[in-house]
């Protein structure tokens, strides 16, 4: 197990290195010039060519691209993700200030999606062909295809503007006002939870339908176990591996969705920071954010692989 984890972490480092290279190159291939954007935004249109060159030199943008990459990577290894050319502040500080906000929304969404999605899948499989099954299948198909931004706007309209049950947008720290925090997070969390919920429900249904016909489930009934023990202990636990995979795969989708949701609901998280950084071509922020997201995805994949061993004792880690 330890060997497996060490090997996977080393593989993750290689992946991170490749991701960092790709993103470093990709953002520089975008049309436009960040220095010109800074000048335009700061009303410095009369700046001389010498001053512009000095500014380029200050941020290392006059060096060859491979040297820029080596400098940036050296900084990353020392915990320095660079400095924003717009705000002149360290990228790491801002990312780690906003990361807990995105994390809170994301974790609530995944939890809600899992806690609601899995039982829905179980109910659907248990009542196969009945009206409730058709309804759940129909709703999960909608859940997987519905655009997050559209759902966000609809929820805002209905629950925020018409019914006035929850605030339309904004974010309050739970340490400041827990009730307000929960009220403000309700809609964004539901929006983000829809996809993992639908995906988990669909996969659970599919796995359960396969497992419910296994002899060990019949054996469990023959033993005289209560039906809920048969369903949850014998059937569901054996159908969990594909469900764990689905939940694992829905985490990057949730991270991607957070960029839209944070923009729609005006949440000062990493997603909104990423959108702003891409729009203004703030290289340092884009690189830092994507590196952190890649790290989160890789760690999630590792956790998913470890969860397989918990779900099925036949799986051995080498």
């Amino acid at each position: 197990m330890t060997t497996f984890i060490i090997r996977r972490l080393l593989e993750s480092l290689v992946t991170l290195l490749l991701v960092s290279m790709i993103i470093f190159l990709a953002i520089r291939l975008l049309p436009g010039d960040p220095i010109q954007t800074v000048i335009a935004q700061s009303d410095l249109s009369g700046m001389s060519a010498e001053k512009i060159a000095e500014l380029r030199h200050q941020y290392g943008l006059d060096k060859p691209i491979y040297l820029q990459y080596v400098d940036w990577l050296g900084g990353v290894l020392h915990g320095d993700l660079g400095t924003s050319i717009f705000t002149n502040t360290p990228v790491a500080d801002e990312i780690f200030r906003r990361l807990p906000i995105t994390f809170t929304v994301g974790i609530w969404a995944i939890l809600l999606g899992t806690v609601v999605g899995i039982p829905l899948g179980v109910i659907s499989a248990n009542r196969r062909g009945k009206k409730i099954d058709h309804l759940i299948v129909f709703l999960t198909n909608i859940g997987i295809t519905v655009p997050v931004f559209w759902l966000g706007l609809i929820l805002m309209l209905v629950f925020g503007l018409y019914l006035r049950w929850v605030p339309v947008m904004g974010y309050t720290s739970p340490f400041e006002d827990l009730v307000m925090h929960l009220r403000q997070l309700a809609m964004p969390v539901i929006c983000l939870a829809i996809y993992p919920m639908a995906a988990a429900a669909r996969q659970t249904r599919s796995s359960m339908l396969e497992v419910l016909h296994q002899d060990y489930v019949r054996t469990a009934r023959a033993k005289g176990l209560k039906e809920n023990v048969v369903i949850y202990k014998h059937a569901l636990k054996n159908g969990l591996i594909p469900v764990i995979t689905t939940i694992g795969l829905s985490i990057p989708v949730t991270v991607g969705g957070s960029t839209v949701i944070e923009t729609v609901f005006n949440i000062p998280g990493m997603g909104r920071l990423a959108v702003n950084a891409v729009q203004s071509q703030d290289y340092a922020y884009v690189q830092g954010i994507i590196l952190i997201i890649a790290l989160m995805v890789l760690l999630t994949n590792l956790l998913v692989d470890l969860a397989y061993g918990w779900a099925d004792p036949r799986i051995r880690y080498r």
Binding site: D215, Y216, T219, A220, N238
Partner: peptide, 11 residues
Amino acid sequence: FQDPFGSLNPR
């Protein structure tokens, strides 16, 4: 049951 591999819960 017939199948000694399928009739015991692997977990």
